[in-house]
Design a protein around this nucleic acid. Structure first.
Lengths: 336, 336
DNA sequence: CTGAAAGCGCTTACAG
DNA sequence: CTGAAAGCGCTTACAG
């Protein structure tokens, strides 16, 4: 039904070998023949069968994107879309296509990471949103499939990763609060199943330390990145430690929870409590008062991840690539 | 390198034909042979080469998802993620994989719809976010590729679509405002490049008509679904028609723009102006006052689109499938 | 510059 | 119940 090189060969009166070579731009075809073949291909509206080509070249021009818990309100998903757009942009020039896999820890399908990738013969994969406890993590550490992770620190001879400098970002956010005069600063962190949580905690501690403010473990709550989690954490923090005047959050969603909790408790932002978030989701600039937060360049993360994956596929050495972030100062924190 | 049926055949001392049949569950293989082959396949950690299979069966177990303007703040993208999750869920049982294509009108790549699909030999496609003026629209009307559109009304022998009942939804939203006592009701609509805009306008008109309220064209502004668009439209509406007491919006994002504009103008919601949105994005329940809006079951839209596409691929007749919506009453509209 | 042939890893009549 | 063979649509040494 679909037109093949055989049809073109017949019509052009040449062999399929020549057709293949002409169409693929090999130099050893006379210009005349090439032109004729190209014209016929055009006329017949020929589309090469990528499946057949894939079978022989063992290249599929496909990379896999593996996302965990796609719509659960989790770590990365507020900006999954932008990362995705970045990836697509990064793949475009090399004409790679993207096949999307979604997994979730509960029903991991008993499909191993390698199997997932091999089934579809993807040439490499970008992985996002995996929890540290996910079995895929261990597998990826040992895989030979070119892989780039987003926000998950694994570096082997085939696996690299892209992330913000979470330590530095948290350091800046906390330092900002300190500069405003705050000393009793709470930290509503993400869950312990995300690498970024530990990195951000480290940055938070560093900022305190640098300013000679003692670290108090009870000022830190591991929530789960969600609004609900932030809501509860805020209440706990404020009830148990009313001396707290500012809170840094490891996600904007949790900061939103704090907004709601503050409102419930009759506290005003930033008059009664200063808040800083992390992510700069759309909401952050729309809410009143607008949220001061860390903006990650998520499009660039995706773009860079794609480009780096392509490089690894070409044989380059995997790296950890850091994407710049930025503290966006708005109205949710005040000078003490 | 990778293990093939040949390896299994050799090890089992049978032909590759038998291996293929045993592994694919054909009945005409002795249980004994089947068991042996299965065990060996397991041992060798065999993964069938889907490319090779695809070449011979001419089935790829792949469907394409085509999204336009992925990260431009557009019509559908606030809930792209949920639709996507729904699609993945709908595809899961039949073990179809999803390949994601992003297109945008400006750089349509000169790649036709058919070409896009044929290149990757997808068995069908789900299309979302296309503008009515997109050239793909015309192509899709004539395509033989099984296709399901989201929110774009095209129905042929191979193409079906899934949408909310936008007329009814807009009717309900407007009627709700009328029931609260509002008579001068503005409508900030989406752009004219979306089918839903016309449907929602129709529903708005119908509600007015049913309640003997004359339709006034100047109360309707076609914005572009974005926050910025809503912001400007709100100001225009309020400046030119200060008698307006309520505004229905064709997207929550535009309603957010109205929130901001109202604030700038020193108007309180809902005391001075009642607002109703459309979509029920996450923001809607988080903002103060919480936004009354139409919730679309976007996960279900995706799920249904996927299931319906599979049905079309199996030869069933395409349909227009309506996904139920719901008016979610919150705090942004008051009784007059 | 061009073509015949082998082969990628499968599936599927066909024959036994 | 099993196997030999053809074929899916390409690419790529190899030979000329």
């Amino acid at each position: 039904m679909a037109v093949t090189i055989k049809d073109i060969a017949k019509k052009a009166g040449v062999s399929i070998t020549t057709v293949s070579r002409a169409l693929n731009g090999y130099p050893d075809v006379s210009e005349e023949t090439r032109e004729k073949i190209k014209k016929i291909a055009e006329e017949l509206n020929y589309t090469p069968n990528s499946i057949a080509r894939g079978l022989v070249t063992n290249k599929t021009q496909t990379i896999g994107m593996i996302v965990s818990e796609l719509i659960k309100p989790g770590v990365y998903h507020p900006f999954f879309l932008e990362v995705l757009a970045g990836i697509k942009a990064g793949l475009k020039k090399d004409r790679y296509d993207l096949i999307l896999f979604t997994v979730d820890p509960e029903s991991q399908d008993a499909t191993s990471y390698e199997k997932l990738c091999n089934d579809r013969k993807v040439e490499g994969a970008i992985v996002e949103g995996l929890r540290l406890s996910d079995p895929y993590i261990e597998e990826i550490k040992g895989t030979q499939i070119p892989t780039v992770l987003i926000d998950i620190p694994i570096l082997t001879d085939k696996v690299g990763y892209v992330s913000s400098d979470n330590v530095q970002a948290a350091f800046e956010a906390t330092s900002y609060l300190i500069k405003l005069g705050h000393k009793n600063i709470g930290f509503i962190n993400g869950h312990k199943d995300a690498a970024v949580s530990f990195e951000r905690l480290e940055g938070y501690k560093k900022a305190l330390e640098k300013n000679d403010i003692p670290y108090r473990e009870e000022y830190v709550i591991f929530a789960d990145f969600t609004q609900e989690g932030g809501y509860n954490a805020f209440k706990t923090l404020i009830f148990e430690h009313p001396e707290i005047t500012a809170i840094f959050h490891a996600s904007d969603l949790m900061a939103m929870g704090s907004y709601r909790a503050a409102k419930d408790l009759g506290m005003r932002i930033p008059e009664d409590i200063s808040l800083v978030g992390f992510d700069d989701i759309e909401l952050a600039s729309l809410i009143t008062p607008a949220l001061t937060t860390i903006r990650q360049d998520t499009f660039k993360m995706g773009y860079t991840a794609a480009k780096h994956l392509l490089a690894i596929i070409r044989g380059e050495k995997p790296q950890h690539i850091v994407i710049p972030h930025k503290l966006v100062v708005r109205d949710s924190a005040r000078k003490l």
